[in-house]
Simulated assay, not measured.
Amino acid sequence: MSPPRHAVRRTLASAAALVVLAATAGCGGAATAGGDQVSELRYQGSVGQVTLPELAADLGYLGDVTLTWIGNVTGGPQDIQATATGQSDFGGAFNGAIVKLAAANAPITAR
């Protein structure tokens, strides 16, 4: 028996969010050029949702790195704009917004 369609869509959406998070992780300015480990990551949350970085922090996967919530985001384009301008250290959006960033020569890198 195959899983319900909404479960498959939710799984695909989560996987896409991980890819976008990885693609935009290099946009922020928290990392130093000398290769020092970052101790704090600024991020925007989502109302009524636990983000993947929040879950990772609660499960202890981030080690000594702390998350600093700077506010809630209303949408993906706003989230990656804040990342591209240095207001937050990482963000996520749907793939179309990432493609538009790349076309505009935004400083994005995959990590």
Results as ranks from 00 to 15, higher is better:
R42E: 15
Q44D: 07
G48R: 02
G29D: 13
T32F: 01
T24A: 04
G48H: 10
D58G: 03
G48D: 00
S39T: 14
S39K: 14
Q44W: 15
G63V: 10
A57V: 06
G26M: 04
A56W: 14
A33D: 09
T51S: 11
G26H: 06
V38C: 12
Y61W: 12
D58M: 11
S46Q: 10
E54V: 00
Q37T: 04
C27D: 09
L55T: 01
C27W: 04
G60M: 15
Q44K: 14
L62Q: 01
S46C: 09
G28N: 00
R42N: 08
T32V: 13
P53N: 03
V50F: 09
G60V: 07
G48I: 06
Q44A: 10
D58F: 06
R42M: 14
L55A: 08
P53M: 07
V50E: 00
A57G: 05
V47K: 08
L59T: 12
G26W: 01
E54H: 02
E40W: 08
Y43D: 09
L52M: 12
G29V: 06
A33P: 11
L62Y: 02
T24E: 12
C27Y: 05
L55C: 06
D58W: 12
T51E: 14
G63D: 11
G48V: 11
E40M: 12
D36M: 05
E54G: 00
S39G: 13
G60F: 14
L41F: 01
